[in-house]
C-alpha cells in the first residue's frame, strides 16, 4: 500500500515537472518572438557569385545564415549582406566582424573592419552587412563571437 502511494506520488511529481518545463518553454518561446515573412525567393541576377563558408558558432547559437548576397555598389566597392535567422527559443546577441580580402587573398587593413553587436529575437531575422574599403576587395571573411547570455 505504502509502495503504491510512493510510486503514485513520484509519477505525479514527474508529470508536474514535465508540465512546468513545457510551460517555461512556451513562455520563453512566446516572449519577444517574431514571425518573419518574406516575398524574396533568391538573390538578384546582378549578384556576384560568392562561396559561403559559415562557421559552426552561428549554428551553435541556433542562428542560420539564410542567404548571402554580394553586389557591387553604386560607388564601386563590393557590398555583402547576410540574412541571419534565429531558430532558437530565446533572444540572441552576437558580435560580428567582416574582413575584406583582395584577389591575392591578403586582408585589406581598414577602419571599417570593426566588431559590431546585434540582437535577433526568437523567430526573427536580421541583416548584417558590410561595404568593402575599396574596389580591390573581392572576397570577405566573417567572424562571429557569441554573447555569454
Amino acid at each position: 500500500m505504502t509502495a503504491t502511494r510512493i510510486a503514485a506520488r513520484a509519477a505525479l511529481t514527474v508529470a508536474a515537472a514535465l508540465l512546468l518545463g513545457a510551460g517555461i518553454v512556451t513562455v520563453v518561446a512566446g516572449c519577444g518572438t517574431v514571425n518573419t515573412t518574406s516575398t524574396r525567393t533568391g538573390p538578384a541576377d546582378s549578384a556576384v557569385e560568392a562561396t559561403t563558408k559559415v562557421n559552426n558558432l552561428l549554428q551553435q547559437l541556433f542562428l542560420t545564415a539564410k542567404e548571402v548576397r554580394m553586389n557591387r555598389t553604386k560607388g564601386g566597392p563590393m557590398e555583402v549582406q547576410v540574412d541571419v535567422e534565429n531558430n532558437g527559443f530565446s533572444y540572441k546577441t552576437f558580435a560580428y566582424r567582416f574582413d575584406w580580402v583582395d584577389a591575392k587573398g591578403n586582408v585589406i587593413e581598414s577602419q571599417t573592419s570593426v566588431w559590431k553587436s546585434t540582437n535577433v529575437p526568437s523567430g526573427g531575422s536580421t541583416v548584417i552587412r558590410s561595404v568593402a574599403p575599396n574596389e580591390d576587395a573581392t572576397d570577405f571573411r566573417l567572424q562571429v563571437r557569441r554573447a555569454e547570455s
Binding site: G75, G76, P77, T112, V114
Partner: peptide, 22 residues
C-alpha cells in the same frame, strides 16, 4: 570607444557605397 569605431565604420561604408567622392 567601440561606439566611435562603429560610427566611423558606418560613415566610411556609406561614403564608399554612394561614391559621392568620385
Amino acid at each position: 570607444f567601440q561606439d566611435i569605431l562603429k560610427a566611423s565604420s558606418g560613415m566610411l561604408e556609406s561614403l564608399g557605397q554612394t561614391g559621392v567622392l568620385k
